[in-house]
Simulated assay, not measured.
Amino acid sequence: MTSVPTASAPLPVLRRLSPPLTALAAVAVPTAFVSVVDPNTSGHYPECPFLTATGWWCPGCGGLRCVHALTHGDLTGALHDNAVAVLLFGVLGVLWLRWGWAALTGGPPPRVTVGARRWALIALLVLVFTVVRNSPIGAGLAPPLV
Rank of each mutant, 00 (worst) to 15 (best):
V84C: 08
R111V: 14
V37T: 08
A83Q: 01
P49S: 02
P20E: 11
F50K: 00
A26E: 07
A78R: 01
L75I: 01
T76M: 13
V132K: 12
L70T: 13
V36C: 07
L125P: 06
A139C: 14
R15H: 02
R111F: 11
P46I: 00
A23M: 13
V84K: 04
I122S: 03
A23D: 05
L87C: 07
N134A: 07
A7F: 03
A25K: 05
A142Y: 11
Y45S: 07
T71K: 09
G77P: 10
V128G: 15
L64D: 13
I137T: 03
P49G: 01
V36S: 08
G106I: 14
G138K: 12
A142M: 04
A120K: 10
G138W: 09
T41K: 05
T22R: 03
W96G: 07
D38I: 07
A142G: 03
M1L: 13
T22H: 02
A102H: 11
P46F: 06
L97G: 09
P10S: 10
T76G: 12
N82M: 09
P46V: 00
L121Q: 01
S3F: 10
E47M: 02
A23H: 03
I137G: 04
L104N: 06
F89L: 11
D74E: 00
L145Q: 15
R133P: 07
L127A: 09
V13C: 14
F89R: 06
D74W: 04
V146P: 10
P20H: 05
V112K: 12
A7H: 14
N40L: 15
V128T: 14
L125A: 04
D81I: 04
L51F: 04
P46Y: 08
I137D: 08
A78C: 00
L24P: 03
A139M: 01
V29K: 14
A85L: 06
P49I: 01
A25L: 11
A26F: 13
L24Y: 04
P144E: 06
C61V: 05
L125D: 12
L95F: 11
R111S: 14
P19F: 09
V36I: 03
G93C: 09
A53C: 05
V4R: 13
T2L: 08
N40H: 15
S8G: 14
G77L: 03
W57A: 05
L121N: 10
A116M: 07
P144Y: 12
V67E: 01
G100P: 02
P30E: 15
I137Q: 09
L141P: 13
P20I: 00
A102F: 09
V126Y: 02
G138N: 04
W119D: 05
F129I: 15
A78F: 00
L141T: 03
L24K: 04
L141A: 13
L17A: 08
P144T: 09
A120V: 09
L145S: 15
I122G: 12
C58T: 12
W96H: 12
A7C: 10
T22Q: 05
C61K: 07
N134H: 13
T105R: 06
P110H: 10
L24T: 02
I122Y: 00
G62Q: 08
S3M: 02
V67H: 00
R117T: 13
A78L: 00
